[in-house]
Nucleic acid binder design. Structure first.
Lengths: 210, 210
DNA sequence: CAAAAACTAGACCAGATGGTCTAAACCACC
DNA sequence: GGTGGTTTAGACCATCTGGTCTAGTTTTTG
């Protein structure tokens, strides 16, 4: 006999109620970009957005509902930056070239709204249970498909065979998750330049020696 | 007119009261190794250690006092692993060789007690104000002196000149902070092997091309 | 125009947090 | 044995958390 349950699926896609409450959306992004899920204060978000508890819980069910609705919007945004790349269906023939293109898309996404980049990274830091619960609402896990692409590219022989594919995948994962720590200034030009250098280092570091 | 203030300095060094409460020490390490400062529950720590609030606040002043006393003990422990290395006063003539030695010491420290490694990393994730407050109690900031060593080594010309020293410092910083993400199994042998590979990748990636 | 449904406001709740405070217990010294 | 400082126990406090609930308002529908 479970308590009256809320339909989270109504939150994602077209009817996402967060689209109708732009102030709540901004307040949520501001808060979740700076604090982890548990640390973020729902009360603060509502206060900043000027929304009452009654209407909030009516539309979003609970704190997780808000996070879900917000992530849905962000995923759409992020996808728009990566869509051009996906057309090529992630080319595996030129590993490092494609990697640079992905890095470029990442930095452009980051520059468009830095909060969103922090948000994506913050999700990676949440525990597995939370992440899995999150992913279960979205059709595809871009994160995992990226990892699979790296895995296949590594196996195609463009990388020194002494490095296990899993290792390379994690190495790249760590690098991408931390580019914001590798750039000092907020200068856009410099950001892309540094990001490219990171790929150069990886390439010289792991490509097959001849 | 400040409130009666507590002397935090009495917590570090010889008279560290945490040395007299081993159960509290273990409970604190367990908690702070798993949760960030704000997330950690002082009540839980005291419950696990079987200590009353009265005596706790008498000896440690507040939550920060406990953290400080704990970090003092851990810093000592960590130093004991790096002491042999420091004798050479961080050799700059063989950059990558020394880097490997440091990595070896790091992994050994990690294997000695994984909680302590997590603790060190977790401190890096705290905000600047907190970290600075922390460091202000210790004579030397090993973290910063390591960075300076890297900086000098890079300037000595063993690294490709297209990479700015600051970039290399941060790159190595990120790698060291994330080695635990790069190893999959808990196998000690494998840990050191992977750690060495990380250095190999860095070396091939950034060393001066001939 | 009225009934029904959707929505909103905010008082309230239980549970947790770090921290305070008083009173008792302990212990060394004369 | 008494005295005075140190240490301990734990009830208590203000404040915060996400979440509930009722009563009222607004909007839609017949």
């Amino acid at each position: 006999m479970k308590k009256r349950s809320f339909d989270y699926k109504a939150l994602i896609g077209e009817g996402n109620p967060l689209l109708r409450y732009p102030e709540l959306k901004e307040a949520a992004i501001d808060e979740f970009a700076v604090k982890r899920y548990d640390d973020a204060s729902l009360n603060d978000i509502l206060k900043k957005a000027g929304m009452s508890k009654g209407s909030f819980y009516h539309h979003f069910g609970d704190k997780f509902g808000l996070y879900l609705a917000m992530m849905d919007i962000i995923a759409q945004k992020k996808l728009s930056f990566f869509y051009p790349l996906m057309n090529e269906n992630l080319d595996t023939s030129d590993f490092f070239g494609t990697l640079k293109a992905i890095m470029k898309a990442t930095t452009e996404f980051m520059l468009h709204d830095e909060r969103l980049h922090h948000l994506s990274n913050r999700l990676m830091e949440e525990n597995d249970a939370f992440r899995n619960r999150m992913y279960s609402f979205f059709a595809f896990d871009y994160y995992q498909s990226f990892n699979q692409w790296v895995y296949h590219a590594v196996q195609s022989g463009q990388v020194d065979s002494r490095y296990p594919p899993d290792f390379v995948v994690k190495l790249i994962e760590v690098m991408f998750a931390n580019i914001h720590k590798l750039v000092s200034s907020g200068d856009p030009e410099h950001l892309l330049e540094t990001a490219t250098q990171v790929i150069d280092v990886i390439q010289d570091g792991i490509s097959r020696k001849h």
